[in-house]
Each structure stands twice: as C-alpha cells, then as structure tokens.
C-alpha cells in the first residue's frame, strides 16, 4: 500500500548544523502515528519541512506517492496536508466563525469571490457552524478569538485544520499549555478525529502518545532513531535511555 506520507532521506542543514539527518519516515493511510523525541531532536523542523515552511537541503517528500518536495505551502494544503501549531497561530481579532469559514471557503475555492457577501455563502457558514458545534466552540463562535480561553483557542487551532478536510493531519503538541481541567476536552477531540484522516502527532506527553498512537517513531539529534508499535517502543531500553529517562 502506498504510504499516505513518506519522506526519503530528508536532510536539512542550517549552515554547518544538520538538523534533519537522512530521515526516511513512512506513515500508512489512516495511521495514528506519533513522533517523539527529546527537546531539540528536530521535530518541529521536520514538520516545517513537511508543510513547506522550510525547504529541505536534500531528499524527497511524497504525499500518497506524489512528489511534493518542490511545492509551495498553500499548494500542499490543497493537496491535503494540514497542520496545527504548537503555539497558537490564530487570527486574534477575527471570530472563530470567520476563521473556520475562511478555511472552509478556501477548500471550496470561494476565496476568489470578490463580490459575494460572506453572509450569502450559506453552504460555508452552515458547515462552519456545524464544525464549531462539534468542537464545542459554537457558543463562542461570534466573539473575537483573543477573548477565548486558552483551551478553546487550542480547539480552534485543530478545528481550522480539520475544516480543510486533510488527508494527512500534523498535530504539533495539541495539548501544550492547556490547563488541566480543559485537557480532557482537547484529548477527546483528538481521539475522535475521523478514522480516514492520517494523523502524525508530535507530542511530549507520553500518556497521550501511548493511549492514542498505533505506531511510534523516535527522533533523536535529527535522526530517526527507532520505530515500532507502542509495545516495542515502550519496551525498548535504548529509547528509554535517550528519551524516557530524559523526560522523567
């Protein structure tokens, strides 16, 4: 089966510093794949390479078997890669409704409509409202995003990505910074993501990784260090040494 997302010998250098070192990662369609590794292992760089925010120094990136290494970030989004950000990147003075409508509208190609009022785009506003309801954001959807509590903002981050109906979703520490009492809400949403969406989860929180992932890759110092099922990885003494020991 063609992997949903694949990297082949991916390399990124900043000057003399090699941050991503010949990473060959393969994520099968529909997977719940987690990418873990200590701080500075190059996880965020890898995401930036996958989404096109950074250009690799070498290697290839394939989406469902198609080479997307040279495409622009927005082209990749159209082809089905979406991501969330570790630190919220939201439009603070737009409302969640407008933000999600933006994502839905772009997916449907409505963004070039100059003279049609947003309010008349019922298909988009209904879909956005339904999505916001699913993400338990309906009651705050008409407030400026900056007035939302942090946990709700994290949910909006994910909702924006889901609104694009991606084939592959890159979740960059979705629960980071969320207060304990709102955490379960975020985790429930993450667990309830549609089964046909391939998810690559970058996460520090081992509980979340072990309960969510069916496959785990370990990144250390820019290299793919180990890969396997949850049992294999959690039982691997070397992984424990470099990672779990470090986290404990």
């Amino acid at each position: 089966m063609t992997p949903a997302l694949e990297t082949q010998m991916l390399v990124k250098r900043f000057g003399g510093l090699i941050v991503t070192n010949e990473v060959s990662l393969s994520v099968r369609p529909g997977a719940r794949h987690a990418l873990i590794g200590p701080n500075g292992a190059g996880k965020t760089t890898l995401i930036n390479l996958l989404t096109g925010a950074l250009t690799p120094s070498g290697g290839r990136i394939l989406l469902s078997g198609e080479d997307i290494t040279a495409t622009t970030p927005f082209e990749r989004v159209r082809r089905g890669i979406a991501r969330t950000f570790q630190i919220n990147q939201l439009f603070n003075d737009l409302t969640p409704l407008e933000s999600v409508m933006l994502a839905v509208g772009e997916r449907l190609g409505h963004g070039n409509r100059l003279f049609r009022p947003l309010a008349a785009d019922r298909a988009v506003s209904e879909e956005a409202a339904a999505l916001l309801e699913r993400f338990r954001l309906a009651d705050v959807m008409c407030l400026p995003t900056r007035d939302l509590p942090y946990g709700k903002q994290r949910l909006l981050e994910i909702a924006l990505a889901i609104a694009l109906e991606p084939k592959v979703l890159l979740l960059d520490e979705p629960a980071a910074g969320v207060p304990e009492e709102d955490r379960h809400e975020v985790l429930a949403i993450v667990r309830a993501l549609p089964a046909d969406v391939t998810v690559l989860l970058i996460e520090h929180d081992m509980d979340l990784v072990f309960s969510f992932a069916d496959r785990i890759s370990v990144l250390a110092a820019g290299r793919l260090f180990a890969e396997g099922t949850v049992e294999e990885i959690s039982g691997d003494p070397e992984v424990k040494a470099i990672y779990l020991g470090d986290a404990a």
């Binding site: 925010a53 989004v77 979406a82 950000f85 737009l94 772009e106 924006l160 694009l164």
Partner: peptide, 17 residues
C-alpha cells in the same frame, strides 16, 4: 476575509491554503 487573514498572519494564511 482572506485579505484580512493574509495581513494578520500570512504564515497561518498559507497553512489554510
């Protein structure tokens, strides 16, 4: 709306396609 998004955060706007 998409213009507002580009102005406020062009990186994020690109990530919405």
């Amino acid at each position: 709306l998409s213009l507002k998004a580009i102005k406020r955060n062009s990186r994020r706007a690109a990530m919405l396609g």
